[in-house]
Amino acid sequence: MIGRPTQKHVAEKAGVTQSVVSHVMHGRECTIRVSEATAERVRSVARNLGYQPNVSARNLKRQRTGMIGVLHGDGFPLMKLYDSRYFAALMDGIIDGAFASGYTVGICPQLFSQTPEDAMADGRFDGLVWYSTFPSESNVERLKNCSVPIAIVHSHAAEFDNRFPTAICDNAGGIRLALEHLAELGHRKVGFAYDGEYLFSEWRLRRDAFLQIAPTLGIKPSLIDVRGDRSGLSKYLTLPVTQTAVIGHDEVLAAEVSNGLQAKGYAVPDHVSIVGFDSTHFCDLQSPKLTSISQPISSLGYRAVQMLAEVIDGQSPTPLETILPCGLDVRASTSSVKEALL
Rank of each mutant, 00 (worst) to 15 (best):
K8F: 01
T17I: 00
S19E: 03
G27D: 10
V34D: 05
S35N: 11
S35M: 11
V42F: 03
R43H: 12
R47P: 03
R58C: 04
R58D: 04
I68T: 06
V70G: 11
P77C: 07
D83W: 03
C108N: 10
S113P: 02
P116M: 10
P116E: 01
A119P: 09
M120W: 00
S132D: 06
P135C: 11
P135E: 08
V140I: 15
I150V: 15
V153W: 00
A158M: 12
E159Y: 07
F160I: 07
T166E: 10
C169K: 07
D170I: 09
I175V: 15
E184R: 15
K189P: 02
D195Q: 07
E202K: 12
W203I: 09
L205E: 15
A214H: 04
L217A: 09
L217Y: 00
R227G: 00
L239Q: 14
P240C: 05
V241H: 04
Q243K: 03
H249N: 08
V272M: 01
I274E: 03
S287T: 15
K289H: 06
S294G: 04
S299T: 11
Y302L: 13
L308H: 06
S316R: 15
P317E: 07
P319V: 10
C326G: 04
G327H: 04
T334R: 04
S336P: 01
V337H: 02
